[in-house]
């Protein structure tokens, strides 16, 4: 579970808060979709949750570990897939995964078993001996997903994880997210694609201008807008008039 309490962030000397007093939680056993227009504060929030930047105010706890006060323990709780998979391009796929396994102290037997499992599922087995620079965007994205999930974290944080994946891999990842949440773990993922959020999420948080403007299930969201409005129209309504 991730808990944000009164979290704010302002960049530089500007008076505009990129994230403004956010208090919400990402519950266990659910897939939480994090939705918002460009520049709404999604990336800043995810960066604060993962410890890339520190909040100006408030606190963030991951499974009870404060990301600022106890960063190493907190970082061990989650697996993070960032929005850019273009990393360490001159390493071979297997070398990147070994680095991830070393970083997260994954035992030898488990790292092998999980790499085999994920690589099979994503159709990446034959590519692991090649350098990442030779991978397509989708293959890089899949490798990053495997690296993030190698230590079997209870919390998954994924920034636009389905971008660039082929239908088969996209389906496999969605299945994995569902299985992970069904096992009582938490999944937080950001997306721009409302259809994906609609089909995948148990719970959504909509952010606009740094503030959380809605938290709840999609049914609860629809109930607030009677007249059979589509999710897209509800989203536009919320983000334009918030």
């Amino acid at each position: 579970m991730i808990t944000l309490t009164n979290v704010s962030k302002t960049y530089g000397n500007s008076n505009i808060k990129a994230v403004d007093s956010q208090t919400w939680e990402i519950p266990d056993g659910k897939i939480t979709g994090f939705i918002g227009p460009n520049g709404a504060g999604k990336s800043t929030t995810l960066k604060m949750i993962t410890g890339i930047i520190t909040p100006d105010e408030g606190s963030i706890e991951i499974n009870g570990h404060d990301i600022v006060k106890d960063p190493i323990a907190a970082k061990k709780q989650f697996g993070f897939v960032s929005d850019s998979p273009d990393k360490f391009l001159r390493l071979k796929g297997i070398e990147y995964l070994r680095f991830c396994a070393d970083v997260y102290d994954v035992p030898e037997a488990q790292r092998r078993e999980r790499i085999d499992l994920f690589a099979n599922r994503f159709g990446l087995t034959d590519a692991l001996s090649s350098r990442i620079i030779s991978y397509s965007h989708g293959m890089r994205q899949k490798l990053m997903v495997i690296g993030a999930l190698l230590h079997n974290p209870s919390v998954w944080i994924l920034d636009e994880p389905l971008t660039g994946l082929d239908p088969g891999s996209s389906f496999a990842l969605k299945e994995m997210m569902r299985e992970h949440a069904a096992a009582g773990n938490s999944v937080l993922f950001s997306t721009h694609i409302l259809e994906i959020a609609e089909r995948l999420c148990d719970y959504v948080a909509i952010v606009n201008r740094g503030r959380i403007v809605f938290r709840g299930t999609l049914e609860q969201l629809r109930a607030g807008y009677p007249g059979g409005m589509s999710l897209e129209n509800i989203f536009l309504e919320m983000t334009n008039h918030a």
């Binding site: 297997i94 070398e95 995964l97 070994r98 396994a101 070393d102 970083v103 035992p107 030898e108 790292r111 092998r112 790499i115 087995t125 034959d126 590519a127 692991l128 001996s129 090649s130 350098r131 620079i133 030779s134 991978y135």
Partner: peptide
């Protein structure tokens, strides 16, 4: 950039995945 598209053998995989200090 060309890709080998070769599956790692069991021995190669074992060697490639050995634990190292951080």
């Amino acid at each position: 950039v060309s890709q080998k598209r070769e599956k790692l053998s069991a021995a190669e995989e074992t060697r490639a995945l050995k634990i190292r200090g951080i």
